[in-house]
Write a protein that binds this DNA or RNA. Structure first.
Lengths: 113, 113
DNA sequence: AGATATACATTGACACGCGAAGTATAATAC
DNA sequence: GTATTATACTTCGCGTGTCAATGTATATCT
C-alpha cells in the first residue's frame, strides 16, 4: 500500500528540511535516503522534489551551491538556513496538531455527546 | 494555530464518512459537529464540504435525499453506502500508514546509520 | 557500443481547497 | 414592520502542489 499524494501534500518540504537538519546534501541522495528509510514504501517523485527545493530556496529556508565534483554528474547541494530550522520546528508542531485533530475527526464514535 | 489546507487535503472525505458512520446527516450539521468536536480549532469550509459531498456521491460512497422539512430551509441528507463503509475503513488504514511514514521521515535524527 | 546508474530541470495536466458571491427560508431584534 | 442573524445549499474561478513525461549530461559496467 503506497502513500497517497494528497496525504504527503503539505509535508514534502518538512521532510526535506528534516533531512537537511542532518547536514548539507543533494537531491538524488535525499531521495534515496527517503526510499531507504521507509523500506521502499515511499519516495518523493523527482519533479516534486526539485520543485520543493525551488520553493524552499525562494522562501529562504535553504541555500544551494554547486558541488566541486571533478567526476560524475554535477550536484547541487543544499544547506538549511536559520530560517529553515525555525520553519522546520514550526511545521513539525503544525503537523502534530493536525495529526491529533484529524485522528479525532476520523473516529467512528458510537456516541459523542 | 489553525490547520493548513494542505494537511487536511486527502482527509476531508474520510472525515465526512466518519460522521456519516454514525447515521444520516446533512451538511450544515456535520460542519457544526466538526467545529464543536475540535473546540473551534477546525472547520471544513462550505465550498470544500459540498464539493466533497459531490465527489463522494459520484463515487458511490454516499447517497443523498431531500429532507421533508415543512419549515426552515431545505436540507439535503446523506447516508453512507456499504461501499462508503468499506472505503472509510480503507482510508483510515491508509491514513495510519501515512502517519507512521511521515512521522518517521520528519524525525531530525542525529544519526540514522 | 549499448545499457544502466547518477543527477538535475522543465512543461503541462490535474485535483483539491477555498474565497467570494448568490439563492432562499425562518427566527429574533429593535 | 423591517432589518439583522441563523439556517442551508450552490457554483465559479483562482491558487497551489503533485507528478507523468521528456530532456540533458556524465560515468560505469558489460
Amino acid at each position: 500500500m503506497s502513500i497517497a499524494s494528497d496525504l504527503i501534500r503539505g509535508n514534502t518540504e518538512t521532510i526535506i528540511l528534516a533531512r537537511l537538519m542532518q547536514g548539507d546534501s543533494y537531491g538524488y541522495v535525499i531521495n534515496k535516503a527517503i526510499l531507504h528509510k521507509t523500506d521502499h514504501q515511499f519516495e518523493l517523485k523527482e519533479a516534486t522534489l526539485y520543485t520543493a527545493f525551488r520553493r524552499l530556496e525562494e522562501s529562504g529556508c535553504i541555500h544551494s551551491y554547486w558541488g566541486d565534483e571533478t567526476t560524475g554528474a554535477r550536484r547541487r547541494y543544499y544547506s538549511i538556513t536559520p530560517l529553515g530550522r525555525e520553519s522546520y520546528y514550526l511545521r513539525k508542531k503544525e503537523w502534530n496538531v493536525a495529526k491529533t485533530l484529524i485522528d479525532q475527526l476520523l473516529e467512528e464514535e458510537i456516541n459523542d455527546e
